[in-house]
Nucleic acid binder design. Structure first.
Lengths: 226, 226
DNA sequence: CCGGGCTGTCACGAATTCGTAACATCCTTG
DNA sequence: CAAGGATGTTACGAATTCGTGACAGCCCGG
């Protein structure tokens, strides 16, 4: 089926991930440090890489960058494992180009789901972009900049992330729970109504461009195209 | 339907969980300590396990690990019950691999919801689609959008779910009780006649496309292909 | 220490949606 | 065709949902 390279320096972690991925029908290759990872990434040409952020010798971020620079490996989807939610911004940053991330601790099932998701996405169309445009509304992700009719709109970090997530999943309704997951990173303690408040603030700042943000009563919010 | 193994050393807790799961239509097997849990997990091959963190003899964490190592049980979703929120990290930890957790005290409703969620995730892969088409009627699930001859039809959350469930089980008659289970989830207090009213509203909004929704007198409703 | 921006929560009200009862109609059965 | 049950239709009060404004805690720079 498909080959996955798993990189982590903790043997237990590797073993668990390996076991679960194999159960899901994938072929698994492992590496325990950065240089080994780079070697195997070229040698085995995996279809996907699960990469721990913290590694001895060569850091996970560094590995990611190098993989992206090399034409032989730059097209391989990477899922980053991070210990802290705070590191996520850097992971998803342009200069790194990880395709997805999971914060530790995570459930193996969750990992398998994301792997499947990325594999599917690989064949399909739905890719993450640096820039989203909805009519006069432009979202520049790496620059953290939003403009409406060329005029800059100042958004807070949360508002920006919320808008970006909605734009990424354009067309599809996102439940409040889903948004809490994606924007607030697994912080289940937060009230779902908080999403409403941030949507309100976001809409207020976006002015007329707020029309791209739909409320789907009883379900959640959705970003629409026109 | 589906079998669930409930593991807790407090009889009261077991009883409460058992009662609620049974009310939701599940078959329940119970165990009061770790070794019994392991035995029954293999013997009964449950579809899901609800596992208390603190157990006499073999700790819940240990049980979880062992279950994950054994190929016979590693695929079974596990929901952990923890007394303290602080323990969550360990529960969802990489080396453990629980799929979800609930902190005590919890509402039975919450538990049932999580169980359903995990079950759905498990089996829904083949049958469930993002999109259903019945002639001029198109149901786009992720977008939460229904169109008839390309014209958008506004449905409430309940109506949409009802239509989706019927479309998923296309061709097969669904009893009112079944529909209440699938659409209204946990709440079995609702009058079956309520389904009729929602069917009426749904048909009204669908206009001509309502012809895809059959009434099977004395039995229930059915979605037909042509 | 103060002040301001950001964030999460709450409370309130308007609007929608829901569940049920009541009545009307349809269908089956004998 | 009559009777009785099942379903369709309508109306309405209850409950839910969402937008809005207010507010307190937090962090950080001055």
């Amino acid at each position: 089926m498909a080959r996955i390279l798993v990189v982590d320096d903790e043997p237990d972690a590797v073993e668990l991930v390996e076991f679960n991925l194999k159960s899901a029908g994938y072929e698994v290759v492992t590496a325990s440090d950065g240089s080994e990872a780079l070697k195997k990434a070229k040698a085995c040409s995996p279809d996907l890489i699960v990469l721990d952020l913290m590694l001895p010798e060569v850091d996970g971020l560094e590995v990611c960058k190098i993989l992206r620079r090399d034409p032989a490996t730059s097209g391989i989807p990477i899922i980053m494992l991070t210990a802290k939610a705070a590191e996520i911004d850097r992971v998803l940053g342009l200069e790194l180009g990880a395709d997805d991330y999971i914060t530790k601790p995570f459930s193996p099932r969750e990992l398998v789901l994301r792997v499947k998701n990325l594999m599917k996405r690989d064949q399909g169309k739905d890719e993450k972009k640096d820039r989203y445009q909805l009519g006069e509304l432009v979202i520049d992700v790496p620059r953290h900049l939003v403009t409406v009719q060329g005029k800059r709109v100042d958004l807070t970090a949360t508002e920006f992330k919320l808008l970006t997530v909605l734009a990424q999943r354009r067309g599809r309704v996102q439940s409040r729970e889903q948004l809490l997951q994606d924007v607030w990173q697994y912080d289940n303690l937060i009230d779902t109504r908080t999403v409403d408040t941030h949507m309100r603030r976001l809409r207020e700042k976006l002015g007329r461009a707020a029309r791209y943000l739909d409320t789907v009563r009883g379900v959640g919010y959705r970003c629409v195209e026109n």
